[in-house]
Amino acid sequence: MQVTINVNGEPITRDVEPRKLLVHFIREDAELRGTHWGCDTSNCGACTLWVDGEAVKSCTVLAAQADGHDVRTVEGMETEAGLDPVQQGFIECHGLQCGFCTPGMMMTARWLLDHNPHPSEEEIREAISGQICRCTGYKNIVEAIQWAADHPATSEVNA
């Protein structure tokens, strides 16, 4: 079947099998490999991206279901103004070690901050509770998200 998915604002049309998972469409068809493919079982959250503004695990959504919908991936975080504060926060606070969980963590962090700009540490930990960092670097990830909350997008941050 033919699907057209708006990925980071760009419509991408491909022929896919109906059983194709969105994570594989993004990586293989849209050729955006920032979205990682981890556990396959909706446990690890490495494949987290947005569908119509909601953070979801893309290993548990069919590409067919996203036909005609808006998808935002980690590649869509940076704007002309520069890095998203979440990305900057992960740099400032050393929010990654191996980097495998990072794209998913950042997409969830941005989703959290859009809904709750000043989350408590507990709310941050709850938000990323569906994601696994196998380096166990949660402390720095939480701090990175806190940094982003404390530094909302301004020209200063993005300079």
């Binding site: 909706s42 959250g45 909601e54 979801v56 695990k57 548990t60 969830t108 509770s129 569906g130 994601q131």
Partner: peptide, 9 residues
């Protein structure tokens, strides 16, 4: 129930 991302969907 599950986690926030699963609850979104």
């Amino acid at each position: 129930i599950a986690d926030p991302l699963v609850r979104n969907r």
